[in-house]
Design a protein around this nucleic acid. Structure first.
Length: 709
DNA sequence: GAGCACTGC
């Protein structure tokens, strides 16, 4: 407690200097009072001294420490973003919702209007009363990355705070890499940029021990206490991953019948788990006793909101996927039931095929989940696995995102910013050699980079086409298609098509309680009016063109009636508009630009020709098989790459199914028609290796494309 | 004739 004494003195000194300050703060008394409960408040001096004396400062503290709301205010009160220290205070977040809600909270605490001194910017939305007035700006990390493209030294900022760095999202990682070089440059120029990296307590060695990131030594680390209420963790005696839903059901029932009031939050792996468990709980617990809700990201936002108006007289029970681990905070939770499992997408690099697996979560995620029980009062977390299993099977952290994704987008972006040898970039965790090779190979095939010298590794320079491609916030495959469509007066349709490719999952295919066959059949009946025998993507375009004509207020019902995914279609609407704005360099373009008819045959052909230019390495050929084989309706395809000399074989003979054969997924509208030549959007392994997102193509389209290249 | 967790410019 002695540590409080010098801090108190410092705050008194502060008040003596009050008149000299430029950024004057008039907080409401009620705000002052609740702020004082935060331990971080008594560390203001220590934090500010470290920031003033060092270029980089690492602050770590768990959720509930108040670091995200208070550190920006410390900087503001220390006259960052004033004439003494010109330049905004920027704070990045990995998620949009967090950027908005933090901006609102900080504006509220400072008694300022959102959009003026305190603002935010995310992909499709900004608080733009006047951005020039912003002194504190919250944004998603992708936004700041884009700003680096226009102004490498980030000269409009005096301080940057990177929040949630421990999550290791790909954008956060790249930002940290840039800042590790930008900040020293700014210091050299006599216009220092202060960088504060904020992370959960657990994962700081990743940064402090990283000499590529911090060649001149590890930054100082300040630890912040959390204000969380204590959560008692109960491990199970045994572990059974096979029957986790049964265990979750029994545990929830026990908590509900034996323990005092307080919400229960149950973590499961999928939407299917959510509906199954919700149903079982509803049969066991009466409506008068509890309201039982399901939560997953695909649930329309209007229904997600239900969790924020909990019933006062009954207990609230929420069955949820990972969406409530970080993205949503459910009020009033006192008990957490943790299955310890999550669903992840896994890539097998060589085959370029992905699959979904249910795996044990990381220890860090388990802590995060249990923490959800301690936000209102002391809570309990029931882990449906043993302490031993936790020790043996649970990795410390989820691997950094950059190790599990194709990096072609990142590579192109780095090159467009002027990083010549991308393998030398100070990644917090460097992807392996083969990821670089694969990305460079694809970018070369797309014509976005070209070889500039002989040697190993990265010997490529960005081309003019590549520069243009990098302007679009989408995968390089898709920006290539979009730019190519320029010649044919089909740009608007292409914006839609490319947005559909980027967003995916616009059509729904699941029916509760139906067999596989029936589910797909029924869904397709709903979608019949958008049918296209040429391409699954054109079905999407057709559905979108209808969606865009519907009044905003009726869009959700429209999607419900037609078995479409509202959240996804809304995103397609926003993205296609953003793409058209960038394409036409006109920020005033609105979605009414897309009140256009479905393309005619000639135009469709042009669209599909442009489409395959981005999928030149994702062509599949039907394998000739004996006549009686087709009765199974599963006709194999073989895939080829442009480097393959036997490209596009016309008479591929195969007896039986080989390891490298693939099938058209039953969700495709081309399923059952089996064209001889197709391009596919991606490969997914479920029961079998499947191709998803199918477009029928012609041999001569491919030939002409090769000549052009 | 299936099975997609979550997030971002």
């Amino acid at each position: 407690m002695e540590s409080l004494i010098p801090v108190k003195r410092a705050r008194e000194d502060d008040s003596e200097n009050h008149e000299e300050r430029e950024n004057i703060v008039n907080r409401l008394e009620s705000i002052q009072k609740s702020r004082k409960k935060l331990p971080i408040l008594y560390m203001e001096q220590e934090i500010m001294e470290s920031i003033k004396e060092n270029t980089f400062t690492l602050i770590c503290g768990e959720t509930g420490s108040g670091k995200s709301t208070q550190v920006p205010q410390f900087l503001y009160e220390a006259d960052f973003s004033s004439s003494k220290c010109p330049g905004k205070i920027g704070i990045t977040q990995p998620r949009r919702i967090a950027a908005i809600s933090l901006a609102q909270r900080v504006a509220n605490e400072l008694n300022l209007e959102i959009g003026k001194e305190v603002g935010y910017q995310i992909r499709y939305d900004a608080s733009t009363i006047n951005p020039a007035l912003n002194k504190i700006k919250f944004m998603t990390d992708g936004i700041l990355l884009r700003e680096i493209e226009g102004d490498f030294l980030l000269s409009s900022y005096s301080a940057i705070i990177i929040d949630e760095a421990h999550e290791r999202s790909i954008n956060t990682d790249i930002l940290l890499g840039f800042l590790s070089r930008i900040a020293p440059l700014r210091a050299k120029k006599g216009n220092p940029l202060k960088v504060v990296i904020m992370s959960a307590t657990l994962r700081i060695s990743d940064f402090t021990e990283n000499t590529s990131l911090f060649p001149s030594g590890a930054p100082p680390v300040i630890h912040i206490e959390s204000r969380q209420f204590p959560v008692t963790v109960h491990f199970s005696k045994t572990t059974s991953a096979e029957t986790y839903l049964d265990s979750a059901f029994e545990k929830t029932l026990k908590i509900h019948t034996r323990l005092p009031e307080g919400g229960i939050l149950i973590f499961v792996t999928s939407k299917k788990d959510v509906t199954t468990l919700k149903k079982r709980l509803k049969t066991a617990i009466s409506k008068e006793e509890a309201v039982i809700l399901g939560l997953y990201s695909m649930l329309p936002y209007s229904k997600q909101k239900k969790i924020f108006s909990p019933p006062s007289s009954r207990r609230m029970i929420v069955v949820s996927t990972n969406v409530s681990e970080t993205s949503l905070t459910i009020p009033g939770i006192k008990y957490v039931v943790d299955t310890g499992l999550e669903k992840r997408k896994v890539f097998s690099g060589n085959l370029k095929m992905s699959k979904y697996v249910v795996t044990w979560i990381s220890k860090a995620s388990a802590e995060q989940r249990s923490g959800r029980a301690g936000r209102v009062s002391a809570g309990h977390c029931y882990r449906l696995y043993s302490n031993a299993a936790y020790g043996i099977h649970f990795e410390e952290y989820r691997p950094p995102e950059i190790l599990n994704l194709p990096i072609s987008s990142v590579i192109l972006q780095l090159k467009s910013i002027g990083i010549r040898n991308v393998e030398q970039f100070p990644f917090p965790t460097c992807p392996d050699r083969s990821s670089f090779a694969e990305a460079l190979n694809l970018l070369d095939k797309l014509g976005s980079i070209k070889q500039c010298r002989k040697g190993k590794g990265d010997v490529y320079d960005i081309t003019d086409l590549g520069r243009k491609m990098a302007e679009f916030p989408i995968s390089p495959r898709f920006s290539k298609m979009l730019i190519l469509s320029d010649q044919h007066n089909i740009v608007k349709w292409m914006c839609i098509l490319v947005a559909l490719l980027e967003i995916e999952q616009v059509f729904k295919f699941d029916f509760e309680g139906e067999t596989a066959k029936e589910s797909v059949k029924k869904s397709k009946e709903f979608h019949a009016k958008w049918f296209s025998g040429e391409s699954d993507l054109l079905c999407g375009v057709k559905a979108f063109l209808k969606f865009i004509k519907i009044n905003d207020a009726e869009k959700e019902d429209f999607c419900e009636e037609n078995h479409l995914n509202y959240n996804k279609l809304k995103e397609v609407e926003d993205l296609s508009m953003q793409l058209l704005r960038i394409y036409k360099d006109d920020k005033t373009i609105e979605t009414n630009e897309f009140l256009i008819p479905y393309p005619h045959r000639k135009e469709r052909e042009q669209l599909l020709k442009c489409l395959i230019s981005g999928f030149i390495d994702q062509v599949a050929t039907k394998i000739d098989i004996p006549d009686d084989y087709s009765k199974t309706k599963r006709i194999p395809y073989t895939i080829s790459t442009p480097t393959d000399t036997s490209i596009y074989p016309k008479d591929y003979a195969a007896l039986g199914i080989k390891k490298d054969t693939f099938f058209i997924h039953p969700s495709s509208y081309l399923y059952g028609s089996y064209p001889s030549l197709i391009v596919y959007q991606h490969l997914l392994f479920t029961k079998r290796p499947y191709m998803i997102g199918i477009t029928k193509v012609k041999q001569e389209w491919l030939d002409s494309l090769q000549i052009n290249n």
